[in-house]
């Protein structure tokens, strides 16, 4: 790890101010991507701004048909939240599937979304649930937020403060883990709302998280696994590595989507 200046603001305003003044900054949320990268000397920011002491970035609240989660809420807190479990059980279950207990007790929703790792789980949840990402500057629809691997709509110094999820009538997430890293090799989040079904896939796409419009159309007409028979995703748009080539990933998207629909249906 290279030497760096460490900052620990207590408000979003202070954090944004620090970000505006300092050169070469990185925000530190749970640190599960940033810190290993720094330890391996693959990243060496001059300034690290730790968001861990900012109270306004915490909390989970339900208002009407929306669940809003503070950006610094840890995966374990989301997984164990009675309100999330009651309103969007699929989201609580997805959080419970992230990493291991150590990761879930450090990693945060805001950090996961801001990083937009192509194998992360939260981006699929945000896209499928049609979430709104709220920053210190604006509100961004999930469809506009995720812009390719490790790329988001966030401007330099912009801080995610909350994520708002409309409560679906039915939803489920199924994940096929990379055997080694246990990240999503393919993760499919399916959510049914009044205005239709959304299907989002993480881990598989060569350009990061994506929606599968053909599946959404098929499921909007008939929310059942059979509706997906014959619906495929293009191999050419799939990622390929030693664990799974594009053909296998494309196949798994179909399998995981069917299983997600079954799981959502089973929940009723």
């Amino acid at each position: 790890m290279y030497a760096f200046e460490y900052h620990r603001p207590t408000s979003v305003k202070e954090a944004a101010g620090l970000a505006g003044q300092a050169e070469d900054i990185k925000f530190l949320a749970g640190g599960h991507t940033l810190l290993p990268t720094m330890k391996l000397r693959l990243a060496g920011p001059a300034n690290v701004i730790d968001l861990g002491q900012i109270a306004e970035l915490r909390g989970i609240e339900r208002a009407g048909d929306m669940i809003t989660i503070g950006a610094m809420m840890k995966h374990a807190e989301v997984a164990n939240s009675a309100e999330v479990k009651q309103a969007i059980p699929a989201l609580a279950e997805m959080a419970e599937l992230i990493g291991d207990p150590h990761v879930r007790n450090r990693g945060t929703i805001g950090g996961s979304i801001a990083n937009n790792d192509p194998s992360a789980d939260y981006p699929a949840a945000c896209l499928a649930l049609n979430a709104t990402i709220i920053t210190n500057q604006r509100k961004i629809a999930a469809d506009d937020f995720f812009q390719g691997i490790f790329t988001t709509a966030l401007e330099e110094g912009e801080i995610i403060t909350q994520v708002s999820f409309p409560i679906p009538s039915q939803a489920a997430y199924t994940k096929f883990r990379n055997p080694a890293s246990r990240y999503a090799l393919v993760g499919v989040f399916v959510a049914k709302q009044a205005d239709g079904v959304r299907v989002a896939v993480t881990g598989a796409g060569s350009n990061g998280v994506f929606r599968v419009k053909e599946m959404e159309q098929a499921l909007s007409g008939n929310f059942a696994a059979e509706a997906l028979d014959g619906v495929t995703v293009a191999e050419s748009e799939m990622n390929s590595d030693i664990h799974a080539d594009a053909a296998y990933r494309a196949h798994l998207v179909g399998v995981m989507a069917r299983r997600a629909v079954q799981a959502a249906g089973a929940r009723g």
Binding site: P179, A180, S181, Y183, I242, H243
Partner: peptide
């Protein structure tokens, strides 16, 4: 699960637990 793989240039592509499956 386990397999150590080098690419053609001799780089170990399973050089961490992210890719080498214990």
């Amino acid at each position: 699960l386990e397999g150590a793989f080098y690419d053609e240039s001799g780089q170990l592509i399973t050089a961490s637990f992210n890719d080498y499956c214990m």
